[in-house]
Design a protein around this nucleic acid. Sequence first.
DNA 1: GTGAAAGCGCTAACAT
DNA 2: ATGTTAGCGCTTTCAC
Lengths: 354, 354
Amino acid sequence: MARRRQSVTIKHVAADAGVSLQTVSRVINDGPNVRPEMKERVQASIDKLGYVPSIAAQRMSGSRSYLILALNDRERTLEEWEARQGSDWVNQMLLGGMLTANQHGYRMMVELVDTHNDHVERELGAAIAALQPDGVILTPPHSENVLIADLLSGMGIPFARIGSLDEGPGIAMTMDDEGNARKATEHLIGLGHTAIGFIAGPSDYSLSAWRVEGWRKAMETAGLSTERLLASGDFGYDSGLNAAQDLLNETPRPTAIIASSDQMTLATLEVARNRGIAVPADLSLISFDNTPIVNFTDPPLTAVDQPIAKTTSRAVELLIEASRKGVRPDAPVNVSGKLVQRASTAPPRHHDNT
Amino acid sequence: MARRRQSVTIKHVAADAGVSLQTVSRVINDGPNVRPEMKERVQASIDKLGYVPSIAAQRMSGSRSYLILALNDRERTLEEWEARQGSDWVNQMLLGGMLTANQHGYRMMVELVDTHNDHVERELGAAIAALQPDGVILTPPHSENVLIADLLSGMGIPFARIGSLDEGPGIAMTMDDEGNARKATEHLIGLGHTAIGFIAGPSDYSLSAWRVEGWRKAMETAGLSTERLLASGDFGYDSGLNAAQDLLNETPRPTAIIASSDQMTLATLEVARNRGIAVPADLSLISFDNTPIVNFTDPPLTAVDQPIAKTTSRAVELLIEASRKGVRPDAPVNVSGKLVQRASTAPPRHHDNT
DNA sequence: GTGAAAGCGCTAACAT
DNA sequence: ATGTTAGCGCTTTCAC
């Protein structure tokens, strides 16, 4: 294959504008010490020649790579992808992050890394060495992996931890799990429910506990008991089946259930259907995630929307700032989600709802 | 922010192994002229030091960038993303391509480019200049954009055109649209249907015509008329509504409809529901795309699965080969999809099905 | 304010 | 079979 060299380089621009390379570089990077007049002339040449700096060369000379790396868990991502159950996490992350990155002249790349692998260090190191990103976005469960945090921190690469409130290096970010769980619970309480079950996510995700916390607090505030109303799963469908069975076997039966993922809510819906429990007449359901499929279930599910795109977008902004100015927020960054009301919630039967 | 330099470079390896830079380079690139013994020694140092070549530096010195760029239409991609109708095209492309790229030591990036913009040339040129990809994957409608093809071809960058059979530079690829439409039609014919309607996609996509062709040929082969059985839309839901109305207004009414996208099929389902036409008892439906949502409709839709991941994966392989050896397939590459049978197809009512 | 020189990490071309 | 030399396109010193 023919060797491809940059067609128009900084040299061409410099020659065209009749200035030194350095001046052109200053204009590109918005550096100081350029007279407006000079700047204009150079910019004119740039536009005329259609010059675009080579990222590789910029990286080489020790400056930015204009690259943000989003790290996802390989196993989980591939599982979700193969299942084709409509999870659009990667999609939301990619597009949300990409658009914001592009606005700042950056690009975003997605990379899969094994968590449970002894070679995290190698895999991650390789990705960093090869790509030299200006910032890294960590998603659960990577965001709570201390080894990864230490590695990144040691290399001086800014990173954001989505779904982690741990102290330590990196920018901690959440999607307001506790608040959202509270909102969901309060919505059901407002409808008149008093026995509201909760299906938690796996305990190795901090956000699982946060959500439980939100539910528990809302219940307590309303003077309601949470006794025998908590079950848990691993976010997957099958685990949701079990959790739903458990909850619906209780007496008295909960009149509403909040589940920590769409898949587990789908499972709950299925269990209810099999037992002849009508949703929402006999059982109200609120889901977490709000992936596209919850629009198409029968009934469509009321769900807590996880603002993945918005969070990723914010992460990109914070990372760019961190890499340029060396600053990071002094407190965890919280991006709020919202409750999307659909048809799976209603007042409980035989209840005097005011 | 502290200036980050590569922590371990080719120099360190060379020093550690007591050889020249060039020898290390040869080992990395599997070059000729290295004694196995030497190679082993160098490899040992590489492993020991955890060395990974910087792709920026590799790019700089005129070799590969190890980067494959996937170009999508900005407008369409963003529309689909915002609608959150469960389209997972980007997801499928990214993961399908990424995994294969990774296996070869390459990375894949997604980039959005405006089609209907006068600045395609600028936008594309900028992306290429900045990234210097070793190969580019074009999806519809970019894959049929002559300007883009010429640009890429002029720069000597290998590219694949997914959904295009045009002659000219680049690797033409299809997902067997004609064959899939034929299969779908034959399936319905096999069930006993004789009046099978077809909702085509927009005419500026070649694949729209290919699908119509597949349907038409299957009908003709079976000796069935296609008169008044063809409508068309733009892949979107609203256009599907109109197309379905038209088709279902005909007398005699078709007993089956194939629509060229999930959204249009969903619309057809809705129109049928509103008119009290039962699916599949009174009307069989086959969809194109097979996005996750078709599992959750009532009834779940029989659909032609578009092998996006597989096609992208194949494209990556072909591009890597093209960039290394300068060869490309001498005929269009066809990646076959399959018909996924669900509950929206059945024999027509009052029909003697054998 | 602007320019000239040095070098980033790597590979192609040319020695040896 | 291996080493040496000269850049790639750009940014960082450091002069002027």
